[in-house]
Design a protein around this nucleic acid. Structure first.
Length: 851
RNA sequence: GCCCGCGUGGUGGAAUGGUAGACACAGGGGACUUAAAAUCCCUAGGCCUAUGUGCCGUGCCGGUUCGAGUCCGGCCGCGGGUACCA
């Protein structure tokens, strides 16, 4: 008998699928459609184990749905623009385009042997001019629809390299290459008006029943709807044109506990003051040395600068408060100005202690003493408290109730008005980089900003650029940059900013429905294939990518590129956990981290050493990331054991939503198991037909396995489904059933395994004389009658501790079960003569005797 | 800092509020073999006064419940996101 040899059977069956066009998605109305999509990869160079995990999960769903009679769309492409290509060009020479396409070729070549049921005919990369040209058309439509505008915004500026830095490129406030202290710089940039849709993006989350609750919660918090008071403080002796400061607060109930007014270093008043006050200028400059990321701002030491200016309290004109410039106030949220109430906020309390400002309470607990000077009083939302100033004497719940009451009083007194605000900011899409989709507009001295004409799309990236000097090479490319104004025809200049790569990934799912259409989408195709029935990807995309895509789908609907039903484009979402691996790092002479590949590190006694003996610092578990050199290459496993082993292994090892620390051990075990299944099948195929008394037991187990595996696949419980398949394989191999029953069980086993190990399954199917391809054979259905047992074994607890068990007919009534349970010898011993107070019988589950 | 998760044997993990540790990996023992590989069988949470009707046990502390890995409150640790990494 020959052996299981994946290197022979895998190419053979891949060829068979290609020939039969098994995974080609064709629009036809004779079957229901099913669109399954995994988040497409960035072409970093080689696939890694996280890709294998992601695409195998999607493939299981795709193949399962195919077997269930669906017309399946399961496409693949590449999210191909982005910084790494430019970094590679700078580091090792070459061109971002060549680097990217060569990586794509490599990765496709690595993915094909995995046998994914993909419709490769639909593949594209976002850096294909055919794709980004359509994206430019979308941009122009959005512009026309009023969904795009320009405004000033700050970026990280590296004063040595004279270039804009991404947040990732700012390390401890310094540029990653130059090491120079980063500055903030203001540029005019393009924005999508996503904030206009804050309300509907928030409300529509409710309808996404098949999304993980945690993702909806994260999105809701990110959108951040709040009810608050917007009002003005009058400024005493302010600079010309500044006689008031607008403040938005979500805590108007603490207004009479205010101790200071704080404004952002980017607030117009701060900008004015720094013009002729060097101290203010120095302070603001210091604030701007922190990067632009929220994390950096929030973690930085809270600093304030007393401007010497005072404002009058709106409720008491004699009450004057100091105005501080503070580094923790964001210009982008609210009005860029806050009031500080140290009595009920930890940050404000710290600030007032630091700068010697008064601390007063505005409400007290209903009972008990507090020392407001020592610590702020911050009760949980909804707790009732007694107000002492505004709302004096009233007992009100903190949170909504107090806020609404405070707003009402303020409005009555002519102090501002209640407003609803969202935390969500508009989406800045301008990037000062080469390797992205050019923004299709032209700057004309006479006409201003002019959209490019659609017939001139795509505005293609020039190839002849160099990365010898930092900065955006488009800025230095005269023949590309200089052009004729689309409106008046006079000499003008192209916009040299390109689009954020999130734009590219915000509509690719729609493009897959008609990847070669001459418009962004084809409505007939979009109407048939959309929505994505199952979207699968990493939890790290829970907020940005998914929110931007939701916005884009709405905007595309407004512009007539998607049907109404696609305003929410992803019906169901599954967020897989990440494959993590330790990071090994050392520091260079400047103290910046240097990362080392796992294969270059020797691990001894929990410590890691390089070949030259240098000890490395081990960061135990982190997302696999090319920039951190902790990526594990799965190709070795595929070459050694085959695709089915790699697929089986990544699915069997851990629950798909959980992060998994990568270990190489276990792949061998998976391979052995597949070999065993193949051997069993070969034996069964060689045996003669016949029946036996043991047939029923095997078939009963088979139906239970069908049931459990089906439920497992439906609910992404792949690891549990595989555990059941292991158990059934054991049952089958030990079974004394006749050859006919074994043959039926083995065929079913192959079918249940086919989404996970499709090549092996096809081979067994063929061995056992299955008709056609197993990939398109109808999925087995469990017979409900075979799932029910006649008897059931019930554990018996005494006071919650297991003391014995009884086996009874499954429909025996409660009283009878109770009688039998109490009569049990072990129970009698435990009772030791005590009279049970209560006996709880949960039918089919458990008996608990309480004494 | 803030938002969201996660935490179960040596390891990966299983468990609609109902027998904690299914199914595997690594380990130990055995069969087959001259030997090895391959294969097959057995074993396996910890502790103890150890073959018992024993005790402990799902990060820590507390609560709800006849019953908690699961629900609630408070901690600790780890991970993701934090708007220019994708």
């Amino acid at each position: 008998m020959s052996r299981y040899d994946p290197s022979v059977i895998e190419p053979k069956w891949q060829e068979a699928w290609a020939e039969a066009q098994t995974f080609r998605a064709v629009r036809s109305h004779d079957k229901p459609k099913y669109y399954v999509l995994e988040m497409f990869p960035y072409p970093s160079g080689r696939i890694h184990i996280g890709h294998v995990r992601n695409y195998t999960m999607g493939d299981v769903i795709a193949r399962y749905k195919l077997a269930n009679g669906f017309n399946v769309l399961h496409p693949m492409g590449f999210d191909a623009f982005g910084m790494p290509a430019e970094n590679a060009a700078m580091a090792i020479g070459g061109h971002p385009k060549d680097w990217t396409y060569s990586n794509i070729d490599t990765m496709v070549a690595q993915m094909k042997p995995l046998g994914f049921g993909l419709d490769w005919s639909r593949m594209f990369a976002t850096c294909d001019p055919e794709y980004y040209g359509q994206q430019q058309a979308l941009f122009l439509d959005f512009l026309k629809a009023g969904l795009v505008y320009r405004k000033n915004a700050v970026v990280n500026w590296d004063p040595v390299d004279m270039t804009v830095l991404a947040n990732e490129q700012v390390i401890d406030g310094k540029g990653w290459r130059s090491g120079a202290e980063v500055e903030r710089r203001e540029l005019t940039q393009w924005f999508f008006k996503i904030s206009d849709m804050s309300g509907e993006l928030l409300e529509a989350l409710d309808g996404l029943d098949d999304w993980p609750a945690k993702v909806k919660l994260m999105q809701a918090n990110w959108i951040g709807k709040s009810r608050g008071l917007q009002f003005a403080w009058s400024l005493i002796d302010g600079p010309d044109g500044f006689d008031r400061i607008e403040v938005y607060t979500t805590r108007p109930d603490t207004l009479l506990g205010a101790s200071f007014l704080g404004i952002s270093p980017d607030h117009p008043l701060a900008r004015q003051l720094e013009k002729d006050n060097p101290e203010v200028a120095a302070f603001c400059a210091e604030c701007r040395k922190v990067g632009t990321s929220e994390e950096a701002l929030e973690k930085a030491e809270k600093l304030g600068f007393d401007t010497g200016l005072k404002v009058r309290h709106p409720f008491d004109t004699a009450w004057e408060l100091p105005v501080y410039i503070a580094n923790f106030i964001l210009m982008d949220y609210g009005t860029g100005a806050i009031f500080g109430c140290p009595g009920h906020d930890q940050r404000d309390h710290d600030f007032c202690v630091k700068y010697g400002l008064p601390i007063v309470e505005t409400f007290l607990p209903l009972d008990g003493e507090i020392d407001i000077q020592a610590a702020p009083f911050v009760p949980p939302k909804g707790d009732k408290v007694r107000f002492t100033r505004l709302l004096a004497g009233q007992e009100v719940q903190t949170g909504d109730e107090a806020v609404d009451a405070a707003i009402a009083i303020c409005e009555e007194n002519g102090v501002g008005h209640g407003v609803t605000k969202f935390r969500l900011r508009d989406w800045g899409l301008s990037r000062q980089r080469y390797w992205g989709c050019p923004i299709p507009v032209v700057h004309c001295d006479a006409c201003g900003v002019v959209p490019e004409k659609k017939e001139n799309l795509p505005v293609e990236l020039p190839y002849d650029v160099s990365f010898d000097t930092p900065g955006n090479p488009l800025d230095r490319h005269p023949t590309w940059r200089d052009c004729a104004c689309p409106s008046c025809g006079k000499p003008a200049k192209r916009e040299t900013d390109t689009m954020d790569t999130f734009v590219d990934s915000s509509w690719y799912f729609a493009r897959f429905t008609a990847p070669r259409a001459e418009t962004p989408t084809n409505m007939a195709e979009a109407d048939y294939w959309m929505n994505v029935d199952q979207y699968i990807g990493g939890i790290e995309h829970a907020i940005l990518h998914l929110l931007y895509s939701r916005f884009f789908a709405r905007a595309m609907h407004i512009c007539g590129h998607l049907p109404e039903k696609s305003k929410e484009p992803f019906n169901a979402l599954f967020t897989q956990g990440m494959v993590t691996h330790a990071i090994y790092q050392t520091r260079n002479a400047e103290g910046r981290p240097v990362y080392h590949y796992p294969e270059t590190v020797d691990l001894r006694d929990g410590k890691g050493f390089l070949k030259d003996g240098t000890e490395v610092e081990i960061i135990p578990s982190a997302k696999m990331s090319k920039s951190k050199n902790n990526v594990v290459d799965p190709v070795a496993i595929i070459e050694q054991y085959g695709a089915d082993t790699a697929r089986w292994f990544v699915l069997s090892d851990s629950p798909p939503e959980r992060d998994v620390e990568w270990t190489a051990s276990g792949a061998e075990a998976a391979s052995k198991h597949l070999g065993r299944v193949w051997r069993i099948a070969a034996e069964v195929a060689a045996s003669d037909a016949g029946a036996s008394d043991n047939d029923q037991a095997l078939l009963r187990e088979m139906h239970k396995t069908i049931d459990e595996v089906t439920k497992g696949v439906e609910s992404f419980g792949f690891n549990a489904a595989i555990a059941k398949l292991y158990a059934f394989t054991n049952t089958l191999s030990k079974s004394k059933a006749g050859a006919a029953a074994k043959r039926q069980a083995t065929r079913t086993l192959a079918q249940l395994m086919s989404p996970m190990t499709p090549h092996l399954a096809e081979d067994i199917w063929a061995m056992l004389g299955g008709e056609g391809l197993i990939a398109t054979a109808p999925w087995p259905v469990a017979d409900p009658a075979m799932l029910v047992e006649d008897t059931v074994t019930l554990p018996i607890q005494v006071n919650g501790k297991r003391r014995g068990e009884i086996t009874v007919p499954k429909d025996m009534d409660k009283a009878e079960v109770e009688k039998l349970a109490l009569a049990e010898a072990s129970v009698q011993r435990s009772l030791d003569g005590a009279i049970p107070k209560k006996v709880i019988v949960v039918p089919g589950r458990i008996v608990n005797v309480v004494i």
